[in-house]
Design a protein around this nucleic acid. Sequence first.
DNA 1: TTGTAGGCGTTATCAA
DNA 2: TTGATAACGCCTACAA
Lengths: 340, 340
Amino acid sequence: MPADDRRRRRATIHDVAAEAGLSHGTVSRVLNSERYVSATAQAAVEAAIAKVGYVRNTAARNLKTQQSHAIGLVVHEPHSLFLEDPNIGAILLGTNEILSNADYQLVSLVIDSDRDSARVAEYLRGGFVDGVIIVSARSGDPIAHAVASIGIPAVFVGHPPDISGVPFVGIDNVSAAASITSRLIETGRRRIGMIASALDRDSGQDRLSGFRQALGARFDSSLVVEFPLYSYDSGLEGMRELLTRDPTIDGVFAASDAIGAGALDALRAAGRSVPGDVGVVGFDDSAWAMRCQPPLSTVRQPADELGRMAARSVLAQLKGEPDVPEAMFLETSIVWRDSA
Amino acid sequence: MPADDRRRRRATIHDVAAEAGLSHGTVSRVLNSERYVSATAQAAVEAAIAKVGYVRNTAARNLKTQQSHAIGLVVHEPHSLFLEDPNIGAILLGTNEILSNADYQLVSLVIDSDRDSARVAEYLRGGFVDGVIIVSARSGDPIAHAVASIGIPAVFVGHPPDISGVPFVGIDNVSAAASITSRLIETGRRRIGMIASALDRDSGQDRLSGFRQALGARFDSSLVVEFPLYSYDSGLEGMRELLTRDPTIDGVFAASDAIGAGALDALRAAGRSVPGDVGVVGFDDSAWAMRCQPPLSTVRQPADELGRMAARSVLAQLKGEPDVPEAMFLETSIVWRDSA
DNA sequence: TTGTAGGCGTTATCAA
DNA sequence: TTGATAACGCCTACAA
């Protein structure tokens, strides 16, 4: 193929207009499928577009319309967890699906430091995106507050405890946690502990609440250990600690599957059998759960659908739809495997 | 906060100019840190920018400069694997780090179907990105060919066997595979098989070549099974097949850790001990490897650095640097754990 | 060293 | 139903 082909100027609306023998105004109307275009004009324009290989110049469109046609996905998570957390990937994919069908571009913004935080806040303020989806915000999260104050269309996937007025989608962590804890009780466990985590987020708080609620009077705060991150290491260390506090412990609710996997390994190292000596349950139904020995009983959360809902919500806000619901909960279910 | 604050028009270069008592030409020069700006002007402009809260309008800039200041990251991988493959996330993070420091926006483009393929090709052709990084392309990949023909600055992370002339970064899969296979031999395994995968990619092909090369005359093609995907299920099924073909098999090279994890589970189900009866090694040093029972000996590949290198390469091409190397290899190392 | 003016490719208003 | 025409905010010759 000839080298000069590569550098050929991109076709504009004017080229299309010339080719079709019409004005660029008409071409623009066809492009935006407005009313008042004759069938003849329509056909001529379409043919011309194909002929000259026209594709719309986004920069020009964005400049004129004052919109970026992009939506930001803010993930506030240390890099290592970004890779480990199965929900984030699924949310990303679900979001991307809806957005790209609606001709919006998804821009991922990963925050891993305070510097990133400032950079992203500036980015949002700069109008680089028309809307924003915020995943796993914590209380006191600067981005969450920036968003609330900028007044840009936004939606939280899981909401930070200290913000209101911004729509969010999520699951009912309290009842899901209560429900899986109950089954630990029903299978006869007497001394049930929890490895709690991410208490600066609603998910972390609510899972702890649900646990407490299910146990009622039998709740024993000395059987709860807390860690900042939903990670394997938290599970490893947490389980060791729990074993020290009460060697007779026979049931554990891990706040995430990664934690559950760590707990399982700590238990094995301590010579306890699962589910024989100790029953363990997790949360997420991530790849972790399937891979553990034994496979983990856990709560399944529809992360991809969460992403889709979030995307639909921003889109609705962008279109100025009147009744965008502020809270949307999706159903969870329990997957019963071998660990309890 | 007053509601009208939210809708206040964004400051432009003109506002800054007015505030600073200069022309917008000068302001623009400061913004682009050009020569010929007096220290006085510089200071005045900077103060004015802070005062009016100016942030540059990307659309206008892009329209004028005919550049998008965005780089596409094309990931050609089914959604399910996108979530499982640890390398992809790490590549993404590495890429993002370099790009955002250089004031470029990373746009992730996930391809999961032929329709996506066409959409993305169109996207690239449309000038939505100034350059593109392509991960895990296969031979015959339409995107890879589109990129080559469009002539847009590009780089492959791992290169498709049938394209040349486009720079790529990668690891030496052949020698890494040969090296880990050798250690299987050195530890006394006699009947060594391989669960190969992704033979339509250089990584898959090369790992098989390395395996074959290490075994030399002892290579036995009946001990090689092939699967399209680097997945846990491939490992499960592949190991079962291998066991059927030769029950005396005592060594296995899994083309990825996910495959290795599957193989381990199949072995356990078949009542074989690892590393007692059978030695197993993987590839990637992903989270899978650590979590297996027993932990997997494997090849460590620096995925994040691969991402950084790729990003630097497109940036260099964009700047028109003369000697952008066409092939860049990064070192791998072997992580010896318990599975062999 | 600074100011002025023109145009990047759209969309959108207004006449025709 | 269509065609002119004027912005959108910025960069960049060129003139001063």
